[in-house]
Design a protein around this nucleic acid. Structure first.
Lengths: 85, 85
DNA sequence: GAGATAATTAGATAACTATCTAAATACTAA
DNA sequence: TTAGTATTTAGATAGTTATCTAATTATCTC
């Protein structure tokens, strides 16, 4: 769960998750929302992927990223238990 | 909210919060659970305090740390909205 | 297959974070 | 008011992270 909290600690990565809430997006589409290079974006996406927060699927020329909803229940649970007495 | 996610990204700081769930603790008491120096602990506590996750109160010689429960609702909300579609 | 587009990886660097020792501050108690 | 305990702050350093440019890999289209 450490990788999850680490992944969420960066505002750019949280913004990526917010973008993916609306719909799956290719890297190029995500890129449009950020000022940094594709290489940097690729690293952020890798961090999210290693934390199991997103999943990828190649569709032809593009790689689409989407939220890995199956782990969010776990994440929320873990987060909640941090705070509830 | 950025400071909150940053504060939660460190496992030591999350452990501190977990300890404080049980009861308020002085710095010395918290210190017993960690291998690093008091100076380092002090920095971690400062990070939690700046994120508004804990509050402090001096009781004589000691400074007691406790969870700032009033902000946890906000934090949970913010966290939840990251994931819910 | 060659050229174009999409995405990742390699290698470098600057900024940030965690940690330490030492010094400073705040309070207690004798 | 001095000695002792609790905590923070100052200053330094090593490790980590975010970022860049350049090179590489993968796929598409002609």
């Amino acid at each position: 769960m450490d990788s999850v909290f680490k992944a969420l600690s960066d505002p750019h990565r949280r913004k990526i998750l917010t973008l993916l809430k609306k719909r799956d997006l290719s890297v190029t589409e995500i890129q449009k929302h950020f000022p940094f290079t594709g290489a940097t974006l690729s690293h952020h996406l890798d961090t999210l992927k290693r934390a199991n927060l997103v999943i990828t699927e190649r569709r032809g020329q593009f790689i689409f990223y989407s939220l890995n909803t199956s782990v969010f229940e776990d994440v929320l649970q873990s987060f909640y238990s941090l705070f509830s007495r």
